[in-house]
Design a binder for these strands. Structure first.
Lengths: 204, 204
DNA sequence: ACCTGAACACCGTTCAAGT
DNA sequence: ACCTGAACACCGTTCAAGT
């Protein structure tokens, strides 16, 4: 049939990403399908594969944007506050950002690449950039610790906050839901950061 | 065609669950398909639906068994040790149990029921039973706190350990992988439990 | 150059028909 | 009573053919 579209390549790309984001926001990763995207934007399924390698590629692109969005939110945390206040503010920023479209954010953890495929470099870099922001805030709170320990703590907090929001989202593991994730995230951050300071190197 | 099988209903049920467990262990939730199960056990796809309502029902059954298995492992933690030692031991037991078949354990967090469907009661009860074991160990470590605070802390630790192992498993979020989950779990548990004791009620 | 749509190899689930 | 397998409504991805 040939060209029929009134869209530039960039527009088409955005169209696809928008439709995909919407589908995921509504139904999670399960709600996404190449054919349904095509239907919504009025193109044939084949067209998607001119723009993206495959669905994994498309999803990875969306994930990248989500991470960028979080990074931007974390940057808004006032730098003049005390480190502990900044840490708590980051936790709340994470929660605030991710809870708008929980299923969309959950993409980062639901989506697994097929065995063998590695995450692209740019993806890892985006993630590292977020981790660095966390480290920067955690670091002054553990002055006697090595850089490795700071990194470890940043990872623990990142994973912990993820764990809490993830369980809160999954209505299935509703153990947590009853109280909402907010207080739990506060609790994790404040208790952890106080504990890390006052303890000798933990056993092991 | 009619009956052809040499299996009792119970045997057939186990056959299905075994094949499913194997498929998930290898390829995660994505690796599971009704038709592939049927192929492996030499039945037609339709037969699965005599035994289970649908794939969600089947998966939920597997999840239940996984939770039971974890509960059994947690019960092995020596009760005469100090509470802090018990808490750390539980963390390691979790890690040990779940890291044997990471993709299988990940099922608990990858699998979401379709919108509207609630988790069955027996499932919630199994989960509660695990949470109670955690609370029992955490409780003596925070003597001045209310029962609600103890529950909150158990949730925080459960979610935190889940978060760490989950990120460690997803090769995608390989930030954590480099060091292995073990030290991070230890760190989370020891720092958090020390922090919770020495702080006043956290700000908020 | 760009897009289509048929084609291929898959899905989950149902249910009439067979033994 | 139990099981089959065709049928229905879906998938992701490719690629010859069309404009």
């Amino acid at each position: 049939m040939g060209r029929r579209s009134s869209h530039t390549p960039e527009e088409l790309r955005e169209l696809i990403l928008e439709a995909s984001t919407e589908l995921i926001s509504e139904g999670g990763l399960t709600g996404l399908s190449a054919r349904e995207i095509a239907r919504r934007i009025n193109y044939s399924p084949g067209t998607l594969y001119n723009v993206f390698e495959n669905l994994d590629d498309l999803v990875l692109t969306i994930e990248g944007r989500l991470i960028d969005g979080l990074a931007a939110e974390l940057d808004k945390v006032p730098a003049q506050d005390s480190p502990m206040e900044q840490a708590l503010a980051m936790g709340r920023a994470y929660l605030n950002y991710t809870s708008k479209k929980p299923k969309l954010w959950n993409l980062l953890f639901e989506h697994h690449l097929p065995a063998g495929r590695e995450v692209p470099v740019w993806y890892q870099q985006k993630l590292d950039s977020v981790m660095q922001r966390v480290e920067a805030v955690v670091s002054p709170l553990m002055p006697r610790r090595s850089a490795e320990d700071v990194t470890r703590s940043a990872h623990v907090l990142w994973a912990g906050v993820h764990g809490i929001t993830s369980l809160a989202t999954a209505d299935k593991l509703a153990v947590v839901t009853s109280e909402g994730a907010g207080p739990l995230v506060d609790l994790l951050i404040s208790a952890y950061l106080q504990g890390i300071n006052q303890s000798a190197k933990p056993a092991r």
